[in-house]
Design a protein around this nucleic acid. Structure first.
Length: 567
RNA sequence: GCACCCGUAGCUCAGCUGGAUAGAGCGUCAGUUUGCGGUACUGAAGGUCGUAGGUUCAAAUCCUGUCGGGUGCACCA
């Protein structure tokens, strides 16, 4: 309907004023109508005419062209407002459920998010980007894209050396064989416990690395080099290598299980840094000859100052690749593997400037890849009450802990043990806020049975399903003639495509959350005022409830939030 | 110091490709139930949109200054 209205208005404008414009059609407050445009203002400026005259001229023709759909077309304060007939509105809302956006039709889109590091804690920030990234990937998918989900993580580098050092020195007391035996003893334990064990070793190692003593520092630096050798030579025989691969496997197994547990789509591809590092090094060396990168104090750097950025090291003076080189290699690898039309990278906003430097350097020789890349950034997750999350210092809040705590609070306040509502609560709480600024997470609020929460939506869904369950079949209503409550709900249902489009165009899932919440509010208002089963208006009301239920379910699915039929 | 991000109700946030009276939730106060899941609904109080200018018929939205908060700025990731 929106397209039709837009075309009608566009044609009218051309007819009267001989100019071609695409009028913006939006959804006004109900009291004004169902669709509106303020094109008169724009035209007034362009044609140097009075906006009221313009609107008046257009209205007759619009009214005529939309005679079969609109019961009212008028001009209030130079807005052209269109109110649909009930039949047209119902039809609009029926079309909403089958609406297929096509902004990314047939495009190959690579979405990178989560980016958890093996050997380190999987903290609440990873949980956040996993959930948000997954929802964004879903949006690209529904918009027609062929989406590949990828996950990048550091399986080599200093943090791994720090970790290995701690294992060798605590569990192994300096002897790799002893360490290996100790780890074998952990094998029967759960992945969760193994991951926690590794995370704790990282904290231990970091303390040693940062301490006054120089010995651990030197040993860790040596170990770091050795680990690169192990990985490059595919060494699986030496004791240290065995320890490394075992712990690495634990980490990846843990990630996979975790994503399964929180019910998000599995990743198509994991890119460990050990794979992208050589590609990055090759690239940097090649471009060193071309003068893109240069040597400085023994390191190979890109000088970003001439582009208003700063200098960053790509290969250290020790000859090891920095994160910059690995990230560079990652972009090349992603293109090699997927030949993407668009590449989305979702990370915390603290690396915005860093990423600009990496991309600016790449732009010197692969401008197409850079043009196709979009770096989306998000803020930090802070717990309500002001506890900061930091994995560096080792006091990072584990993602698993956040889920468990939320489940506990969910049980205490609502007496439900369902993981569906717990996960729904967390996901919705993370998704409902605009991507970018920090997010303050309150478990209590997220599971809250009232207010703008996941469980509120799930409850509203279950309530509507419960009505539908009570009837065998829906009969086509003989006539419409919607009452106020029916109409406001139908109108809201029909808005689904508008919000979906907006979410996709801006790559902002929170618009969809806002919509689903407003939709459910509309439903609950309707529910309060309108008996469905047994009422004279049962047929039409069932139809609307059914539309509502389906749209809500579809919307929640797009966010990977489950919509159970009963709670 | 330089760069980027953010300041909207007591709290947490929508609204930002400029457009109709700035909206929700929580909290506070007052109500609604012989009903399909009351885990709901209705109403009230609460905002000079940090601040000062500018652009415009029209600014929370765009531009500039300023104040406040956050983040980043060479061998960590």
């Amino acid at each position: 309907m929106k397209d039709k209205i837009q075309k009608v208005i566009k044609d009218e404008i051309f007819k009267h004023f001989k100019v071609t414009v695409d009028p913006v059609i939006t959804r006004p407050d109900e009291k004004f109508g169902d669709y509106t445009t303020n094109i008169s203002f724009g035209l007034a400026h362009q044609l140097n005419k009075n906006p009221r005259e313009i609107a008046e001229k257009l209205i007759e023709g619009i009214r005529h062209s939309l005679a079969s759909d609109a019961i009212q077309v008028n001009n209030v304060a130079n807005f052209i407002n269109i109110k649909l007939s009930d039949e047209a509105l119902i039809k609009d809302s029926e079309l909403a459920i089958t609406y297929k956006p096509n902004l990314y039709k047939d495009q190959v889109i690579v979405c990178e998010y989560s980016d958890a590091n093996p050997f380190k804690v999987f903290h609440v920030g990873h949980l956040y980007t996993s959930i948000v990234g997954n929802a964004i990937a879903n949006l690209f998918e529904v918009a027609g894209g062929k989406v590949f989900r990828v996950n990048f993580g550091g399986d080599v580098g200093r943090h791994v050396a720090i970790n290995m050092w701690a294992i060798l020195n605590t569990a192994g007391k300096g002897d790799p064989k002893v360490a290996l035996e100790f780890l074998a003893g952990l094998e029967p334990k759960s992945l969760d416990e193994k991951a926690a064990y590794l995370a704790d070793r990282y904290v231990e190692g970091t303390q040693a690395f940062e301490s006054e003593e120089s010995e651990p520092h030197t040993q860790i630096t040596e170990l770091n080099k050795k680990l690169y050798e192990i990985v490059n030579s595919k060494d699986h025989e030496s004791d240290i290598a065995k320890i490394y691969w075992l712990c690495r496997d634990w980490s990846y197994a843990y990630f996979k299980k975790f994503y399964q547990d929180i019910e998000i789509t599995a990743f198509d591809r994991y890119y460990p840094e050990s794979e992208t590092a050589p590609i990055g090094i090759d690239t940097v060396n090649k471009q060193l000859k071309n003068g893109v990168y240069e040597e400085s104090d023994g390191a190979i750097v890109f000088k970003g100052e001439k582009y208003g950025l700063h200098t960053r090291v790509f290969i250290t003076s020790q000859g090891l690749p920095s994160y910059e080189a690995k990230d560079l290699g990652l972009i090349m690898a992603k293109y090699r593997d997927f030949k993407f039309d668009k590449s989305i990278v979702i990370t915390g906003n603290e690396i915005t400037e860093y990423m600009r430097v990496v991309l600016k350097s790449l732009e010197q020789y692969e401008p197409k890849l850079v043009a196709a890349t979009t770096h989306l950034t998000h803020g930090m997750v802070k717990m309500a009450g002001g506890v900061k999350i930091s994995s560096r210092k080792g006091n990072g809040l584990r993602a698993r802990q956040v889920i468990e705590d939320t489940a506990k609070i969910n049980f205490e306040t609502t007496n439900t043990k369902s993981m569906e509502t717990t996960l729904g609560a967390i996901k919705y709480a993370f998704l409902k806020q605009r991507l970018g600024p920090d997010l303050i997470y309150s478990p209590e609020e997220s599971v809250s049975i009232t207010g703008n929460s996941g469980p509120y939506l799930q409850y509203s869904h279950a309530r509507s399903r419960s009505i539908l369950k009570k009837v065998d079949k829906t009969i086509e209503p003989s006539s419409y003639g919607l009452d106020d409550q029916e109409r406001q709900l139908t109108r809201k249902i029909s808005e689904f495509p508008d919000y979906l489009d907006k979410s996709i165009a801006e790559i902002m899932p929170h618009h969809l959350c806002t919509y689903l919440y407003e939709l459910s509010q509309s439903f609950n208002k309707f529910y309060e005022a309108s008996r469905v089963i047994g009422d004279d208006r049962e047929a039409i009301r069932l139809k609307i409830v059914s539309l509502y239920s389906d749209i809500l379910k579809k919307g929640l699915e797009l966010l990977s939030i489950s919509a159970p039929n009963q709670l």
